[in-house]
Simulated scan of single mutants.
Amino acid sequence: MANRTGTYFGFDGLGQTDPTKSDFRYYATVQSWASGKGIDFKFVNSHEKASAVRDTSRRATLEASIRQRLAASKNMVVILSGDTRKTGSMLSYEIEKAVDTYDLPLIIAHTGYNSILDPSALSNRWPNTLTTSINNATAKAIHIPFKKDAILDAISQFSVNGARLGGPLVHYTREAHVGWGYIL
């Protein structure tokens, strides 16, 4: 198996060709954190490890590229927004493969929240494949707010090579959220 050092980012493109109208904008935020001067946020992006595939590619080609990227990844960040679809996006395929084939820990980053202290309260945001893998406990996941420090901490800790998550509804403590300055 390939050296698994990358972090795979999954998000719903919402069927849009304009990335500013989809959850791609959150992924672009992560890219800006990684490239910003004076910002200590670095990660190996699994999307850069395989040949780029356009949205117009045949589904089989796209799925093959996704599998190649997931195989090289140590974990997967799943970006969920209020717009994320329950079905019909490649995100569902990505989650299914990450959990069932590659045994990747999932870092579920919820946009629009300062803290995640009860992940099950956000189940209305989960794509059906995520709901299934959480309910049958095949997913190993930590639920975090879409915030730089939380994402960086989770990426650095939870991987196929590092700390294992104890189940599908793991979250950081209230104290951790306070320490990051997300809540009082």
Rank of each mutant, 00 (worst) to 15 (best):
4 R>A: 01
13 G>S: 15
13 G>C: 14
15 G>M: 08
16 Q>R: 14
17 T>R: 09
22 S>I: 06
23 D>C: 07
24 F>T: 08
28 A>C: 08
33 W>D: 03
38 G>F: 02
40 D>R: 07
41 F>T: 00
45 N>W: 05
46 S>P: 05
47 H>R: 13
48 E>R: 13
49 K>Y: 12
49 K>W: 07
50 A>R: 11
50 A>F: 08
54 R>Y: 15
60 A>F: 11
62 L>Y: 15
62 L>R: 14
64 A>Q: 14
68 Q>K: 12
73 S>T: 05
76 M>C: 11
76 M>S: 07
80 L>G: 01
81 S>C: 03
84 T>V: 03
88 G>V: 10
88 G>R: 07
88 G>D: 04
89 S>C: 11
91 L>I: 10
93 Y>W: 06
96 E>F: 10
98 A>N: 05
101 T>V: 15
101 T>C: 06
103 D>M: 05
107 I>D: 00
113 Y>A: 13
116 I>T: 09
118 D>C: 11
119 P>Q: 06
120 S>I: 08
120 S>V: 09
120 S>N: 11
121 A>V: 04
125 R>I: 03
127 P>T: 02
127 P>G: 02
128 N>I: 14
130 L>C: 03
133 S>F: 08
134 I>Q: 14
136 N>G: 05
137 A>M: 11
138 T>M: 10
139 A>E: 01
139 A>S: 07
140 K>P: 05
141 A>D: 04
143 H>R: 05
148 K>R: 15
151 I>L: 01
152 L>T: 08
156 S>T: 11
156 S>W: 02
158 F>N: 00
159 S>A: 04
165 L>H: 01
166 G>W: 04
167 G>A: 00
170 V>W: 02
173 T>R: 00
175 E>V: 10
179 G>E: 07
